[in-house]
């Protein structure tokens, strides 16, 4: 059932965007060209789909953390973070100008950087602090799911460095800390067991 919580601000839902990726059909295709939130949603769904394919290729879809809880968690967060959110002020050269970045644009950027790491999918991406106040200290919280086999500490450190560089270039936020939490490890399946005839009656 479609609930208000499922819909983005433009009225479309992740389910509709997912169906569009599968079928190429949506009620108002022209809308997709004019909606940055739908575009960010489609990009995230494509990357999630690629990770899903990677898992299927590795035959781990039914292993490790089991069903698709991790993917559902990611989709739940995606639904929240595709909204424009708060407006982040930027310095203007003319005092009569007001320049902003949307919180959603920065969250989508963080998500795309995290998703660009092999075997990694971003879950929750949050900007904590008063991002509407220039110079306020901001903490970035990012949760990721990682396919088993990737060194988690190295992955987290590399992601933290990449995010720090990217946020310094693409925003004017005063980033105090970037916290990376690995919330899911998508494990490889255990090797198939050879039947042990000695234990059998």
């Amino acid at each position: 059932m479609k609930t208000p919580g499922d819909a983005l601000e433009c009225g479309h839902s992740l389910a509709e965007l997912s169906a569009y990726l599968d079928t190429g059909e949506i009620a108002d295709p022209a809308h997709l060209d004019s909606c940055p939130e739908c575009q960010a949603g489609l990009a995230s769904l494509r990357r999630l789909s690629e990770l899903g394919n990677e898992l299927l290729t590795a035959d781990v879809a039914e292993a490790g953390s089991g069903g698709d809880d991790w993917m559902q968690t990611i989709l739940d967060n995606l639904r929240l973070e595709l909204r424009p959110g708060r407006s982040i002020p930027l310095r203007a050269e003319d005092p009569q100008d007001t320049l902003w970045e949307t919180e959603g644009s920065v969250s989508a950027l963080i998500r795309s950087v995290a998703d660009s790491f092999p075997g990694t999918a971003a879950g929750k991406c949050r900007l904590l602090g008063d991002i509407t106040e220039p110079g306020a200290g901001i903490t970035v919280d990012v949760e990721i799911a990682v396919v088993y086999g990737h060194a988690m500490e190295e992955r987290a450190a590399a992601l933290r460095n990449e995010l720090a560089k990217m946020l310094q270039v693409q925003t004017e936020l005063d980033i105090q800390a970037i916290n990376i939490t690995v919330t899911d490890v998508l494990e490889l399946p255990a090797p198939a067991m050879t039947p042990n005839t000695e234990d059998q009656p």
């Binding site: 940055p36 575009q39 100008d97 007001t98 320049l99 902003w100 949307t102 644009s105 989508a108 693409q170």
Partner: peptide, 9 residues
Amino acid sequence: VVEVLVAKI
């Protein structure tokens, strides 16, 4: 007065 909003990066 000019307002510019970055909606996608």
